[in-house]
Simulated scan of single mutants.
Amino acid sequence: MEMSTLLFFILSVFLGGAFGAGAYYFWSGRHKLKSEPQREATVLLERIEKVFKVVMAEGYFTEIYNYQHDKNFWNLIKDKKKALVIAKAKVLVGYDFGKLRFHVEGNSKKIVIDYFPEPEVLSMDTDYKFYDIEQGWLNRFQSDDYTSILNEAKQTMNEKALQSDLPRIATNQVQLMMFQLAATMNWKIDMQLPETNKNVIEEYSSYKPVEAGIESLNRKTEE
């Protein structure tokens, strides 16, 4: 009888331990499935530079970029991939005064500008979204493809920004600021620029004529 009781006790302990271990692994497994992914980021400051850049104009752009790549395998299989990218960008245009060249004539309180830089895109804050992504069995998107698409879309946005009115607005704004600031201190600014540099700045400073005039509108109305 005592032997049966001892055997029953040992069996109960063994089953209880097995049940407890099983319950532990079950709940720990569920906990691992529900756990949040671990994230770790390392930020390294490479260098600090002193700059004198002034933003003079701000523009908002939306670009619809269609990408398609057709690939021919051994002249037997044609496979293509394509994607639609909608890009939004906030573009800041201004001047890098580190490129400005001038000298000061203190006796006459005059600042002589020897070279005036062109307006440039100082910053571009972009947001991209991919739509209608299609890819074949063999011709599939790789990580390099997405990087290339984003670089091309950003380059196109940069070109469109420089072709817009932002450089003209920035040029007029910076000249107004410089002349007003000099006037408040009883100084004068003399733009003695090389001919090529002068022509470029004048091109940016001048307002573009509107193509649609009143006469043309009246002529279209009569027709």
Rank of each mutant, 00 (worst) to 15 (best):
K71E: 15
Y131F: 15
Q173I: 10
K34G: 06
S148N: 11
K88G: 07
I64C: 05
F19E: 00
I111E: 01
A21W: 11
M124S: 12
V121E: 07
N151C: 02
Y60V: 10
L181A: 10
S123K: 08
F19N: 02
W137T: 08
F141Q: 03
L84K: 12
V174H: 02
K50Q: 15
V54K: 08
L6V: 14
H31N: 09
E120Y: 04
A161M: 01
H31K: 10
L122F: 14
L11I: 14
E223F: 09
W137H: 04
Q163C: 01
S164T: 07
E203P: 00
Q173V: 15
V174T: 10
Q135I: 06
I214D: 00
F116L: 11
N72L: 12
Y60T: 07
S205Y: 12
L84V: 12
G22E: 00
F61P: 01
I201S: 04
K71T: 15
Q180C: 02
K78S: 13
I189V: 15
M124C: 10
V13D: 01
K32L: 09
E203V: 04
A18F: 04
T156V: 11
V104N: 04
N72M: 07
R39W: 10
L6E: 14
L138Q: 00
L92Q: 12
K99C: 02
K198P: 01
L181C: 02
Y95D: 05
R168D: 05
I111F: 03
R47G: 09
L84E: 08
Q180M: 10
K99F: 05
I113T: 06
N199E: 15
I189E: 01
A170P: 05
W74N: 09
V13L: 12
L193G: 04
